[in-house]
Protein backbone atom coordinates (compact mmCIF):
# COMPACT_ATOMS: atom_id res chain seq x y z
CA UNK A 1 0.00 0.00 0.00
CA UNK A 2 1.46 3.31 -0.98
CA UNK A 3 1.15 6.17 1.46
CA UNK A 4 -1.08 9.18 1.04
CA UNK A 5 0.93 12.21 0.03
CA UNK A 6 -1.71 14.86 -0.53
CA UNK A 7 -5.26 15.04 0.61
CA UNK A 8 -7.58 17.80 -0.57
CA UNK A 9 -10.97 17.92 1.15
CA UNK A 10 -13.86 20.03 -0.04
CA UNK A 11 -11.61 22.92 -1.07
CA UNK A 12 -13.27 26.23 -1.85
CA UNK A 13 -11.23 29.23 -2.99
CA UNK A 14 -11.89 32.62 -4.48
CA UNK A 15 -10.08 35.54 -6.03
CA UNK A 16 -11.34 39.08 -5.68
CA UNK A 17 -14.54 37.79 -4.05
CA UNK A 18 -15.31 35.47 -6.96
CA UNK A 19 -15.51 31.80 -6.08
CA UNK A 20 -13.42 29.66 -8.43
CA UNK A 21 -12.98 26.36 -6.60
CA UNK A 22 -16.28 25.00 -5.40
CA UNK A 23 -15.45 21.91 -3.43
CA UNK A 24 -12.45 20.02 -4.79
CA UNK A 25 -11.71 16.59 -3.37
CA UNK A 26 -8.57 14.77 -4.38
CA UNK A 27 -6.27 12.20 -2.79
CA UNK A 28 -2.83 11.58 -4.19
CA UNK A 29 -0.65 8.70 -3.11
CA UNK A 30 3.10 8.39 -3.41
CA UNK A 31 4.25 7.22 -6.81
CA UNK A 32 1.18 8.47 -8.68
CA UNK A 33 0.77 10.84 -11.61
CA UNK A 34 -2.54 12.70 -11.75
CA UNK A 35 -3.58 14.69 -14.78
CA UNK A 36 -6.06 17.49 -14.38
CA UNK A 37 -7.82 18.59 -17.51
CA UNK A 38 -10.68 20.95 -18.07
CA UNK A 39 -11.96 23.88 -20.04
CA UNK A 40 -10.60 27.41 -19.62
CA UNK A 41 -11.72 29.06 -16.42
CA UNK A 42 -12.49 25.75 -14.72
CA UNK A 43 -10.08 26.51 -11.89
CA UNK A 44 -7.02 24.45 -12.90
CA UNK A 45 -4.51 27.23 -12.32
CA UNK A 46 -6.37 28.38 -9.20
CA UNK A 47 -5.86 24.93 -7.74
CA UNK A 48 -2.11 25.14 -8.28
CA UNK A 49 -2.03 28.69 -6.90
CA UNK A 50 -3.93 27.69 -3.77
CA UNK A 51 -1.78 24.62 -3.15
CA UNK A 52 1.37 26.75 -3.31
CA UNK A 53 -0.02 29.57 -1.16
CA UNK A 54 -0.30 32.35 -3.72
CA UNK A 55 -1.48 35.36 -1.67
CA UNK A 56 -3.78 36.55 -4.46
CA UNK A 57 -6.21 33.70 -3.69
CA UNK A 58 -8.31 33.17 -0.62
CA UNK A 59 -9.26 29.76 0.68
CA UNK A 60 -12.80 30.09 1.97
CA UNK A 61 -13.25 26.54 3.24
CA UNK A 62 -11.81 23.06 3.06
CA UNK A 63 -8.61 21.37 4.11
CA UNK A 64 -5.37 20.28 2.47
CA UNK A 65 -2.85 17.93 4.04
CA UNK A 66 0.62 17.14 2.78
CA UNK A 67 1.97 14.07 4.56
CA UNK A 68 -0.58 14.77 7.27
CA UNK A 69 0.65 18.33 7.80
CA UNK A 70 -1.86 21.14 7.40
CA UNK A 71 -0.63 22.69 4.18
CA UNK A 72 -2.92 25.71 4.25
CA UNK A 73 -1.35 26.96 7.48
CA UNK A 74 2.15 26.99 5.99
CA UNK A 75 3.83 30.01 4.38
CA UNK A 76 4.53 29.57 0.65
CA UNK A 77 8.27 29.12 1.26
CA UNK A 78 7.64 26.48 3.94
CA UNK A 79 5.35 24.54 1.57
CA UNK A 80 8.16 24.63 -0.98
CA UNK A 81 10.72 23.38 1.52
CA UNK A 82 8.32 20.63 2.58
CA UNK A 83 8.41 19.48 -1.04
CA UNK A 84 5.66 21.23 -3.00
CA UNK A 85 6.96 22.43 -6.34
CA UNK A 86 5.10 24.38 -8.98
CA UNK A 87 6.29 24.48 -12.55
CA UNK A 88 4.78 27.86 -13.41
CA UNK A 89 2.62 28.32 -16.45
CA UNK A 90 4.34 31.69 -16.87
CA UNK A 91 7.79 31.54 -15.25
CA UNK A 92 8.75 34.96 -13.89
CA UNK A 93 11.76 36.87 -15.18
CA UNK A 94 13.97 38.21 -12.41
CA UNK A 95 16.54 40.60 -13.92
CA UNK A 96 19.78 40.89 -11.98
CA UNK A 97 19.35 37.72 -9.93
CA UNK A 98 21.63 35.04 -11.35
CA UNK A 99 20.46 31.45 -11.67
CA UNK A 100 23.40 30.48 -9.43
CA UNK A 101 22.45 32.78 -6.55
CA UNK A 102 18.78 31.95 -6.92
CA UNK A 103 19.27 28.21 -7.03
CA UNK A 104 21.76 28.17 -4.18
CA UNK A 105 19.41 30.20 -1.97
CA UNK A 106 16.54 27.84 -2.81
CA UNK A 107 18.52 24.66 -2.27
CA UNK A 108 20.07 25.80 1.00
CA UNK A 109 16.69 26.92 2.33
CA UNK A 110 15.42 23.40 1.75
CA UNK A 111 18.52 21.83 3.27
CA UNK A 112 18.22 24.00 6.35
CA UNK A 113 14.59 22.94 6.71
CA UNK A 114 15.75 19.33 6.57
CA UNK A 115 18.43 20.01 9.18
CA UNK A 116 21.28 19.70 6.71
CA UNK A 117 24.38 21.88 6.28
CA UNK A 118 24.50 24.30 3.31
CA UNK A 119 25.80 22.63 0.17
CA UNK A 120 29.49 23.20 -0.56
CA UNK A 121 30.27 25.38 -3.60
CA UNK A 122 31.91 22.44 -5.35
CA UNK A 123 29.05 20.04 -4.78
CA UNK A 124 26.61 22.73 -5.83
CA UNK A 125 28.31 23.34 -9.17
CA UNK A 126 28.55 19.61 -9.83
CA UNK A 127 24.85 19.22 -9.12
CA UNK A 128 23.99 22.17 -11.37
CA UNK A 129 26.03 20.66 -14.22
CA UNK A 130 24.47 17.24 -13.82
CA UNK A 131 20.89 18.56 -13.78
CA UNK A 132 21.46 20.96 -16.67
CA UNK A 133 22.51 17.99 -18.75
CA UNK A 134 19.24 16.26 -17.97
CA UNK A 135 17.32 19.16 -19.51
CA UNK A 136 19.86 19.86 -22.26
CA UNK A 137 20.36 23.38 -20.92
CA UNK A 138 23.49 25.33 -21.85
CA UNK A 139 26.45 25.75 -19.47
CA UNK A 140 26.19 29.52 -19.52
CA UNK A 141 22.86 29.27 -17.68
CA UNK A 142 24.55 29.83 -14.29
CA UNK A 143 25.39 33.46 -14.88
CA UNK A 144 22.18 34.39 -16.60
CA UNK A 145 19.44 36.17 -14.72
CA UNK A 146 16.52 33.95 -13.77
CA UNK A 147 14.39 33.45 -16.91
CA UNK A 148 15.46 36.80 -18.35
CA UNK A 149 15.56 36.68 -22.12
CA UNK A 150 14.85 32.93 -22.13
CA UNK A 151 12.76 31.56 -24.97
CA UNK A 152 9.44 29.94 -24.10
CA UNK A 153 11.01 26.50 -24.34
CA UNK A 154 14.02 27.46 -22.23
CA UNK A 155 11.75 28.82 -19.51
CA UNK A 156 9.85 25.56 -19.28
CA UNK A 157 13.07 23.54 -19.30
CA UNK A 158 14.35 25.83 -16.57
CA UNK A 159 11.32 25.01 -14.46
CA UNK A 160 11.98 21.29 -14.73
CA UNK A 161 15.68 21.93 -14.11
CA UNK A 162 14.75 23.62 -10.83
CA UNK A 163 12.51 20.67 -10.03
CA UNK A 164 15.45 18.35 -10.64
CA UNK A 165 17.63 20.44 -8.31
CA UNK A 166 15.08 20.55 -5.49
CA UNK A 167 13.69 17.00 -5.72
CA UNK A 168 10.17 17.81 -4.50
CA UNK A 169 7.76 15.16 -3.22
CA UNK A 170 4.84 16.81 -5.02
CA UNK A 171 5.32 18.51 -8.39
CA UNK A 172 2.55 20.50 -9.96
CA UNK A 173 3.11 21.06 -13.66
CA UNK A 174 0.84 23.90 -14.72
CA UNK A 175 0.45 23.77 -18.49
CA UNK A 176 4.11 22.94 -18.85
CA UNK A 177 3.39 21.90 -22.43
CA UNK A 178 2.01 25.26 -23.54
CA UNK A 179 4.30 27.05 -25.96
CA UNK A 180 6.61 24.07 -26.40
CA UNK A 181 7.62 22.66 -29.73
CA UNK A 182 7.75 18.89 -30.02
CA UNK A 183 11.50 18.62 -29.26
CA UNK A 184 11.28 20.77 -26.16
CA UNK A 185 8.20 18.85 -25.07
CA UNK A 186 10.09 15.58 -25.36
CA UNK A 187 13.03 16.91 -23.32
CA UNK A 188 10.77 18.33 -20.64
CA UNK A 189 8.68 15.17 -20.43
CA UNK A 190 11.75 12.92 -20.29
CA UNK A 191 13.10 15.13 -17.52
CA UNK A 192 9.88 14.74 -15.55
CA UNK A 193 9.79 10.99 -16.11
CA UNK A 194 13.37 10.52 -14.96
CA UNK A 195 12.61 12.41 -11.75
CA UNK A 196 9.78 10.05 -10.92
CA UNK A 197 10.33 7.85 -7.86
CA UNK A 198 8.06 5.56 -5.83
CA UNK A 199 8.01 8.25 -3.12
CA UNK A 200 6.99 11.33 -5.12
CA UNK A 201 3.94 12.30 -7.11
CA UNK A 202 2.92 14.76 -9.81
CA UNK A 203 -0.12 16.76 -10.75
CA UNK A 204 -0.07 17.49 -14.47
CA UNK A 205 -2.39 20.29 -15.50
CA UNK A 206 -2.96 20.39 -19.22
CA UNK A 207 -5.41 21.22 -21.94
CA UNK A 208 -4.16 18.61 -24.31
CA UNK A 209 -3.80 14.89 -24.54
CA UNK A 210 -0.44 15.42 -26.31
CA UNK A 211 1.59 15.83 -23.09
CA UNK A 212 0.01 12.71 -21.64
CA UNK A 213 1.49 10.62 -24.43
CA UNK A 214 4.83 11.42 -22.85
CA UNK A 215 3.95 11.70 -19.16
CA UNK A 216 1.52 8.85 -18.70
CA UNK A 217 -0.96 9.50 -15.89
CA UNK A 218 -2.36 6.95 -13.47
CA UNK A 219 -5.49 9.06 -13.13
CA UNK A 220 -7.16 11.72 -15.23
CA UNK A 221 -9.52 14.17 -13.58
CA UNK A 222 -11.80 16.59 -15.34
CA UNK A 223 -12.19 19.88 -13.52
CA UNK A 224 -15.20 21.92 -14.57
CA UNK A 225 -16.72 24.92 -12.86
CA UNK A 226 -14.58 24.50 -9.76
CA UNK A 227 -15.20 20.81 -9.14
CA UNK A 228 -13.79 17.48 -10.24
CA UNK A 229 -16.64 16.08 -12.30
CA UNK A 230 -15.07 12.95 -13.76
CA UNK A 231 -12.17 10.72 -12.82
CA UNK A 232 -10.80 7.96 -14.94
CA UNK A 233 -7.62 6.39 -16.22
CA UNK A 234 -5.56 7.61 -19.17
CA UNK A 235 -8.29 6.61 -21.61
CA UNK A 236 -10.42 9.46 -20.26
CA UNK A 237 -7.95 11.92 -21.77
CA UNK A 238 -8.31 10.23 -25.13
CA UNK A 239 -12.06 10.34 -24.86
CA UNK A 240 -11.88 14.04 -24.05
CA UNK A 241 -9.61 14.69 -27.00
CA UNK A 242 -12.10 12.96 -29.25
CA UNK A 243 -15.40 14.29 -27.95
CA UNK A 244 -14.47 17.56 -26.29
CA UNK A 245 -15.77 18.64 -22.91
CA UNK A 246 -19.26 19.04 -24.22
CA UNK A 247 -19.30 15.47 -25.49
CA UNK A 248 -18.80 14.21 -21.94
CA UNK A 249 -22.23 15.47 -20.94
CA UNK A 250 -20.89 17.09 -17.79
Amino acid sequence: MSKTLLEIKNLHASIGGKEILKGVNLTINEGEVHAIMGPNGAGKSTLSAVLTGNPAYEVTSGEVYLKEQNLLEMEPEVRARAGVFLSFQYPVEIPGVSMTNFMRAALNAKREYEGKEPISPKEFLTLMREKKKLLELPDKLNNRSVNEGFSGGEKKKNEIFQMAMLEPCLSILDETDSGLDIDALRIVAEGVNRLKTPQNASIVITHYQRLLDYIVPDFVHVLADGKIVRTGDKTLALELEEKGYEGLNL
Binding site: T52, G53, N54, P55, E75, P76, E77, A80, R81, F85, L86, F88, P91, V92, E93, I94, P95, G96, V97, N101, F102, A105, A106, L107, A109, K110, Y113, S145, V146, Q162, L166
Partner: peptide
Protein backbone atom coordinates in the same frame (compact mmCIF):
# COMPACT_ATOMS: atom_id res chain seq x y z
CA UNK B 1 7.66 42.82 -8.17
CA UNK B 2 5.17 40.69 -6.23
CA UNK B 3 5.19 37.95 -8.84
CA UNK B 4 8.98 37.67 -8.59
CA UNK B 5 8.73 37.50 -4.80
CA UNK B 6 6.16 34.73 -4.98
CA UNK B 7 8.23 32.85 -7.56
CA UNK B 8 11.20 32.88 -5.19
CA UNK B 9 9.09 31.90 -2.20
CA UNK B 10 7.73 29.01 -4.25
CA UNK B 11 11.29 27.78 -4.47
CA UNK B 12 11.72 27.90 -0.69
CA UNK B 13 13.39 31.29 -0.35
CA UNK B 14 11.88 33.24 2.54
CA UNK B 15 10.24 36.54 1.74
CA UNK B 16 12.83 38.68 3.47
CA UNK B 17 15.65 37.09 1.55
CA UNK B 18 13.70 37.24 -1.70
CA UNK B 19 13.22 40.97 -1.17
CA UNK B 20 16.93 41.41 -0.53
CA UNK B 21 17.82 39.50 -3.70
CA UNK B 22 15.59 41.84 -5.72
CA UNK B 23 16.98 44.95 -4.03
CA UNK B 24 20.54 43.77 -4.64
CA UNK B 25 19.72 43.15 -8.29
CA UNK B 26 18.34 46.66 -8.53
Amino acid sequence: DESALFYMQQRGIDKQKARQLLVNAF
